[in-house]
Design a protein around this nucleic acid. Structure first.
Lengths: 168, 168
DNA sequence: TCTATTTTTCAATTATTTTTGAAACTTCAG
DNA sequence: CTGAAGTTTCAAAAATAATTGAAAAATAGA
């Protein structure tokens, strides 16, 4: 398989998978392009490679920087801005976990705390079902929260090594 | 807080969070409604509780059944079909992991295998960067795959207990 | 079988999200 | 200061996804 063809396919597929993960297609494609590029790229490079508009590149690059997945790179003597992606896949995953935890899990747990106390007869089966569901989700969520904190802090090989042993 | 109010809020929020997880709002709301309901509900019940159309309920219920999160329940003497959700949150999580692995991770790994061999000079930095990125994602993906297989098989308390110790 | 009831399907509509592109803004060299 | 090069913004347009509702299909009791 030729390099260009493989690159095209990788970018297209990464973009498609991105939509499963709540990331929009273009953002995932830009990320894919930067991960497989040996050198940093400018916004114009990305526009050309992906056939998308300047505004689109600009907005999605900004989001990727917010997610901590892409960095601005200054190239001496160049006026343009260049961008490169974190290439260590473990760091990428860690960063995504960290951000998603912050954006999704933490707010969810805050909400569940507010739904704890319900007025009325604790023996009523509707009240019982509701409070049981909410509290079991809360319990599960807190455990997940702690686990992810650990995971984010852990060293790659140590973590995977241990986990591999556990599940063998 | 009153039960009805808390239920409303739980359903609305679960729906909103669902969109983060690649699940559409309505599907997540139906799931939420069934999780907090003490008794199985009919399609008409759900239409009324969530103010959505019959077709919408029907399609999303079917998806939830495909995901293994909801079951048809036969109520003796009733002509209508009733539905209930799995209420054990650990089973819910396990089921979601299993399905997403099947739908997302497995196809991704299959693709990466195809992108392995690139024609040309192995020393060329563009080829090198591409193959390195692809193979490191593949490696990471396979490890994740094995880990999730283990997780799905594992018993709740055993798993969380161990993980808690690991990360304390 | 017939028919009332319930479920399913799907084309058309509606809502949401993404993308474009041109104008506004910023930066910097001369 | 001026203006060319580069970046950002955002309203409008396009693309995508979700929802409706009515017709078709399935089901079960008489």
């Amino acid at each position: 398989m030729k390099l260009e063809e493989a690159q095209q396919q990788f970018i297209a597929s990464w973009g498609a998978f991105g939509t499963y993960w709540g990331i929009n297609r273009t953002m995932a494609q830009i990320h894919a392009l930067l991960m497989i590029s040996a050198d940093p790229l400018s916004q114009d490079d990305m526009m050309e490679r992906l056939s998308i508009s300047r505004g689109n590149v600009n907005m999605n690059i900004r989001d990727l920087i917010d997610w901590g997945l892409v960095n601005r790179v200054l190239i001496p003597g160049e006026r343009k801005e260049y961008f490169s992606a974190e290439k260590d896949i473990w760091k990428v995953a860690t960063q995504i976990v960290k951000e998603r935890k912050k954006r999704e899990l933490d707010p969810m747990l805050r909400l569940l705390d507010q739904l704890g106390e319900i007025e009325g007869d604790k023996k009523d089966k509707h009240i019982k079902q509701f409070t049981e569901t909410v509290s079991s989700i809360k319990r599960f969520g807190s455990q997940t929260d702690k686990m992810l904190d650990g995971l984010v802090k852990a060293d790659e090989n140590w973590f995977l090594g241990n986990l591999m042993k556990m599940f063998r």
